[in-house]
């Protein structure tokens, strides 16, 4: 776990980032890579109410972390987008009897958080399109670029939330056009 946290009794947790995926399967590790990037960038923002979690998969005990947050952003890799393309879309509690093993979807985890712990933070899934999920501990260049851009975009979102707590993030971009987004608006 990669955490930048303080005593939760002193400072309420506002924003939780959970990056998940297998860092030994090339671009499947994009989620943890975004968290790693955020961890190098966050100190300049010095925001004690932000927490970063990097993990291989979503597991039920993460509900306890989610329950403490005002908002949560899941960061994942996907084969459903072209390589390097990024989206941020809302996530909602979603009950599914597909939960049959040791891991969960963001929607299922939110539903567990809601029902078991009585909390339902605002939630989004930030996704990056994969180029390769073969065995490798390196991201492909296209996805590595997207990881950097998404991390910066999420930092801009944090900045925006500080001014406008109700801000609803959204993103639909590829790794080239992401740099053209005007984050100030």
């Amino acid at each position: 776990m990669c955490c930048k946290e303080t005593d939760s009794a002193v400072v309420a947790l506002e924003t939780l980032f959970i990056g998940y995926g297998n860092s030994l399967r090339a671009d499947d590790g994009a989620g943890p890579a975004v968290i790693e990037k955020l961890s190098t960038l966050l100190p300049t923002y010095c925001d004690p109410s932000v927490r970063l979690i990097s993990c291989a998969q979503l597991t039920p005990e993460l509900a306890t972390d989610i329950a403490q947050a005002h908002r949560v952003i899941f960061v994942d890799a996907t084969m459903a987008l072209p390589p390097g393309h990024m989206t941020i879309s809302p996530a909602h509690p979603e009950e599914s009897n597909m939960v049959m093993g040791h891991h969960f979807t963001p929607g299922a985890l939110l539903a567990i958080t809601q029902h078991a712990l009585g909390a339902c933070p605002g939630a989004w899934v930030a996704a990056i399109g994969c180029q390769s999920i073969e065995i490798s501990d390196q991201l492909t260049p296209t996805v590595a670029t997207a990881v950097d851009h998404l991390a910066i975009h999420l930092l801009k979102c944090l900045s925006r939330w500080a001014r406008e707590p109700g801000f609803l993030p959204k993103l639909l971009a590829d790794s080239e056009s992401a740099v053209m987004i005007n984050y100030g608006n």
Partner: peptide, 17 residues
């Protein structure tokens, strides 16, 4: 399933988590 569990036995499910 786990959601039925949480709905009908929330304390039990919470203890598991």
């Amino acid at each position: 399933n786990i959601f039925g569990l949480i709905r009908e036995h929330p304390d039990f499910a919470r203890d598991g988590i």
